[in-house]
């Protein structure tokens, strides 16, 4: 199955990746090859197989409800691109 440039544009938008027009053909080609590779899966009938989401056959372990974290805002925001008065800044969000 071959992807079209429009597919790549759609995927790139969903993944929030800027892809230039110039790079698009290479992505179309490479992604199509990869999708062809994984398409080999279709040769096997898996009707009665239970999906395996995880290698470990274990159940969730729960933690007790206790506050164990302290305020580390200064440390965390020291590595942030843009902060002001304790909040992270981004271009205006429109709801």
């Amino acid at each position: 199955m071959s992807l079209q440039p429009s597919d790549v544009e759609k995927i790139a938008h969903l993944a929030r990746l800027a892809v230039s027009e110039q790079d698009t053909p290479a992505y179309v080609r490479n992604l199509s090859n990869i999708i062809d590779l994984v398409g080999q899966m279709n040769a096997v009938d898996t009707t009665h197989v239970t999906p395996m989401a995880h290698p470990l056959d274990m159940a969730a372990r729960l933690r007790p409800d206790a506050v164990t974290e302290i305020n580390q805002r200064e440390r965390f925001q020291a590595i942030a691109p843009e902060v002001d008065a304790g909040v992270y800044l981004v271009p205006k969000v429109i709801e």
Binding site: A66, V67, T68, E69, R73, F76, Q77, G86
Partner: peptide
């Protein structure tokens, strides 16, 4: 008392990002 997946406090009204671990 604490968040669903972390040990940070859930109390309302704290100064911004002081309860974000």
């Amino acid at each position: 008392q604490s968040k669903i997946f972390s040990g940070a406090a859930t109390a309302y009204g704290a100064s911004p990002n002081t309860q974000a671990c």
